[in-house]
Write a protein that binds this DNA or RNA. Structure first.
Length: 560
RNA sequence: AGCGGGGUAGGGCAGCCUGGAGUGCCCGUCGGGCUCAUAACCCGAAGGUCGGUGGUUCAAAUCCACUCCCCGCUACCA
């Protein structure tokens, strides 16, 4: 079936990955949902001839950071500095090709957040409310958010947090809880008056709806589902300030003991990080309607990107770029369980490196089971079988066959006579591959790449150059030449998934020009005749059953 | 209870939004081919009343209604 895409792309593609919360090590589920997906997508758009800006960073404000810092005996600043390095190392190890990497706690982000706030304020979308809030007399501070636990007023589940009941998913205000208890000191908090700022979402809603209705058709199913669930319930004013110290100070007189709620400055962080990285150029991306904006995230992040962030920007009445394609994923579970830091279940970003399995292989499997249409599982046996059969057996082996044949019969020189019939025949599949990527269906695009690669193996099998070499050398030469050209195309289409492997092939083919500059279109031109190939060894190692068993044990959480 | 995900060949999945012959992917089983290749590659076969009932339709795995099961979460976690 031909996959059609109705997405019209401009020449500039802006890509964001949800900003991982800084005070924890991200696990494979976090990575595939946001960072890696955004990376494969950004890489694809580059080889597709687009100008790309890929924005990545860390979300550093909020209550959790304060609590965590307290636990580790650090200041919030020290804590986020420490974890930022950990995050950066993980992204780098996974070959993340970000153009901008930054932090929501930067100066630049504080400035743009305040700018946006001032616009909202000026346009009458900010409301001041005095509310009675829970206050701990023992700790002498207001208890916002997750500092308080109690019974949910809607579903009456116990252990609901102050900002949200995980039981029924409803968003709460902390003072709505029944029988609240302070999580800091265990005391029963008292009610005390405090004032807060709210964003008037109902007032913005009409414009938001207008925009949403023109955009949603391009979003992932889960994103549309979640967004409409929210809209159906009707938007309410939403508090955007907190009684905390760690955060961006509210720029109004008499408000200097309040900071913005981290969910206010976190999405704005995409812009802040861009400014932090490329300065004034940021306007070419975030205030340019010719840009196409793709945002990648896990499904839990959808409301903030589909409703909150667009509402903030619409409320400024300025020409900010709103998301075109909201690419959200479901969850990747671990061997039928959930990833859990405290139970030590699952593979976390820093563990991946220590397995000795290379980043490409991790990337391959994660993209292969990317949760595009429902939750999926990371299963070690499946990891082994998909890597060994698909990545190694199909793609890696094809490349290896070609080099070996060429070495054996033509001393590693590319022979003459490629008819480009294989590469031509595959053009419709390449179009499908491109369309899938354009719709952010990364897993399906990878499956399509595998399909294309398998045709290479079939071609070799059908043409049997190792036999025809004995009777018709020109024919064998043409076959191998054809396969060398095909390798070039494969290197390009696999580049979003396994960049290191692709670059190895590139080196093998003696290509001088950068793989991104050549791109998909350029790859059809093939390899110059007489080119001397360079042997680069095996592209991807197989996973041994024995090590799979070991890893299964090691990450099951049962060992200690 | 609430929220979320799911029930498609022996196992694991995609296909469902946008209805058009059960179409496909990985493993497994059986048979064959090939021997260039990382015990890899290629071809073929067996194996499915697409959880159930009812409806809409010329046509339903796909849309609608009802129903039966399974799983996850509700303690940091996406």
């Amino acid at each position: 079936m031909i996959v059609l895409s109705d997405i019209k792309l401009g020449n500039k593609i802006l890509v964001t990955s949800a900003l991982p919360y800084v005070n924890n090590v991200p696990h494979l589920g976090n990575l595939i949902g946001s960072v890696l997906s955004a990376d494969a997508f950004a890489r694809f758009m580059r080889i597709n001839g687009k100008e790309v800006l890929f924005v990545l960073g860390t979300d550093e404000h909020g209550t959790t950071t304060e609590v965590r810092a307290m636990e580790e005996g650090l200041t919030p600043k020290e804590l986020v500095d420490k974890y930022f390095v950990i995050h950066k190392n993980i992204y780098d190890w996974f070959e993340t090709s970000y153009d901008c990497l930054g932090r929501t706690s930067s100066e630049a982000n504080a400035k743009i957040t305040i700018d946006i706030f001032n616009d909202l304020y000026k346009n009458g979308f900010i409301i001041e409310n005095t509310i009675t809030q829970l206050y701990s007399e023992k700790s002498k501070k207001f208890l916002s958010d997750r500092f308080v636990e109690g019974e949910c007023p809607f579903c009456h589940a116990l252990g609901a947090r102050g900002d949200q009941c995980d039981s029924c998913g409803k968003l709460l205000e902390p003072n709505e809880l029944i029988n609240p208890v302070s999580k800091i000191d265990g005391t029963k908090p008292i009610l005390k008056e405090t004032k807060h700022l709210y964003i008037d979402l109902p007032k913005i809603e009409p414009d938001l709806m207008k925009w949403y209705n023109t955009t949603k058709s391009k979003w992932s199913n889960v994103a549309v589902g979640i967004t409409e669930h929210w809209l159906k319930q009707g938007l309410k004013e939403r508090c955007i300030t907190r009684d905390l110290e760690w955060g961006i100070k509210v720029p109004l007189e008499g408000w200097d003991n309040k900071v913005f709620y981290s969910w206010f400055d976190a999405p704005i962080g995409y812009i802040g990080i861009t400014i932090e990285s490329i300065g004034d150029e940021w306007k070419n991306w975030w205030m340019n309607q010719d840009v196409t904006l793709y945002q990648f995230m896990g499904k839990d992040n959808v409301p903030f990107h589909a409703i909150m962030f667009p509402a903030f920007l619409i409320g400024t009445k300025k020409d900010y770029k709103l998301v075109n394609y909201l690419a959200s994923t479901d969850y990747l579970n671990y061997e039928d369980k959930k990833f859990s830091k405290s139970k030590n279940i699952g593979v976390f970003g820093n563990d991946a490196k220590e397995t000795g399995i290379c980043a490409d292989v991790w990337r391959y499997y994660l993209f292969r089971v990317r949760p595009e249409t429902g939750d999926t599982q990371f299963v070690w046996d499946d990891f082994g079988s998909k890597v060994n059969n698909e990545l190694v057996g199909n793609f890696g082996n094809f490349i290896n066959r070609v080099v070996s044949l060429d070495e054996k019969f033509f001393e590693l020189k590319k022979p003459k006579g490629s008819k480009k019939e294989l590469i031509e025949s595959v053009k419709p599949l390449i179009e499908e591959y491109k369309n899938l990527f354009t719709e952010a269906r990364i897993r399906d695009a990878l499956i399509k790449a595998n399909e294309i690669s398998a045709l290479g193996n079939k071609y070799l099998q059908d043409k049997q150059p190792w036999i025809t070499i004995k009777t018709d050398e020109a024919l064998a030469a043409a076959t191998i030449a054809e396969c060398i050209d095909f390798s070039k195309l494969l290197a390009v289409i696999y580049y979003p998934f396994v960049p290191k492997g692709s670059e190895k092939i590139w080196q093998m083919l003696g290509e001088k020009e950068n793989i991104v500059n050549v791109g998909i279109n350029g790859a059809f031109s093939g390899v110059r005749e007489e080119t001397k190939l360079t042997k680069v060894g095996i592209l991807f190692e197989k996973l041994e059953q024995k090590s799979i068993e070991e890893f299964k044990q090691k990450f099951s959480g049962e060992r200690k």
